[in-house]
Nucleic acid binder design. Sequence first.
DNA 1: ACCTGAACACCGTTCAAGT
DNA 2: ACCTGAACACCGTTCAAGT
Lengths: 225, 225
Amino acid sequence: MKEGTPRTIVSRRNRPAKAALSRDVIVAKALEVLERDGFSGFNLRRVAAALDTGPASLYVYLENLDELQALMLDSALAAVNLPKGQDLEWRSELKAFLLSYFRVLYERPGVAQIALSTIPTGPNSLRILELLLGLLAEGGVENAKAAWGADLLLLYVTAIAAEQSNWRAQKMVFERVKAALDNASKEEFPLIAAHHDTLISGGHDRADWALEVIINGMLFGGKQP
Amino acid sequence: MKEGTPRTIVSRRNRPAKAALSRDVIVAKALEVLERDGFSGFNLRRVAAALDTGPASLYVYLENLDELQALMLDSALAAVNLPKGQDLEWRSELKAFLLSYFRVLYERPGVAQIALSTIPTGPNSLRILELLLGLLAEGGVENAKAAWGADLLLLYVTAIAAEQSNWRAQKMVFERVKAALDNASKEEFPLIAAHHDTLISGGHDRADWALEVIINGMLFGGKQP
DNA sequence: ACCTGAACACCGTTCAAGT
DNA sequence: ACCTGAACACCGTTCAAGT
């Protein structure tokens, strides 16, 4: 949660309307702007405008736009449901954990796209990675492979969330892909034609299936069954 | 480098030096610029400059920058080694195929990053998808899951190629990640500390292992083994 | 038809000057 | 210390005018 500098209760009178700037205030407002305008409509100047100031003001608190996006991502990841205890078996906990991670990225337009171009190193990201390593170890994933496995799971969930939220956000993109598959020669690409509907289907089931695939694959340690 | 106004040696006769523009010429030159300047240094104006013209000229042949990037990606994918025949077993062919796909994206700085933000619908992309569906069918992957599986494989290979080529291209990024892991509290994140070296290791072995994991997982149809 | 100079509407970032 | 107007050095894209 982190509480920044405690509310300084400057209170009414003077002009309390203009909230004092701080990293936390900027990050929170930036996430609002991202949610409202989407990834393609997001930029520093709009964040500044939403804060009723000029873009130059933000550089007192931020190194650059990259740092802001990293802070936004970590802040958004606070919403991920962490595995609570030992109630469930490790496998169910792992899946629920990752699906929550998927949902957080998928449901907020733009956050998934930021995640794709930002390697997260904030406290919430570290907590997620640590818990993931623990669950894999509990599941008996070979020690040396647990690190690669955790990375594989996060990378894939991030990528599919970005792809699918992008399709939802930009219906034009989806229509173009669909049209390209429709127009593909059915003689030259018979399998694409046969799998047409499945290829462009998406949503929750697909992410769920993919997680099963990766988890099962890891349990065999990357060797042939 | 940039050489200001080019020495105007208009040379022999008319001025045949200035190669006639075309989509192919633009795409080829754009890939050169991408290779030379990297993804972050790539833009339309530099492509135009490399073609010795102004940016407006390109709009005779291109809808916009997105279309150029889609064409660049498909052009780069021509270098992927397609599975030749029935010499090898399907599994070896599948892995060699995907590793070639990985290498093409990984070895060209920037191409992998373009691939992440561009859904490929060009002829080379379609050919790759078609062949992939065929190999999975040959391997006995359940019909309805082959489409999702092909997409899963391509998505993951693309994502890991983009991540790793980005680390190589921007050592600063890598150093920052390494520093973040180093500085993480060893009491709060003991597993991250224990897996430190493996987490930041990369390269070929990692992609190879990940492919084994996904292929093995798919053979179980996403059900518990 | 193709090409292009010039302009438009933006960006992120810096800097000098204010408080 | 914080804030800000103004400017800088870019972008992608459009448009009118040329050939």
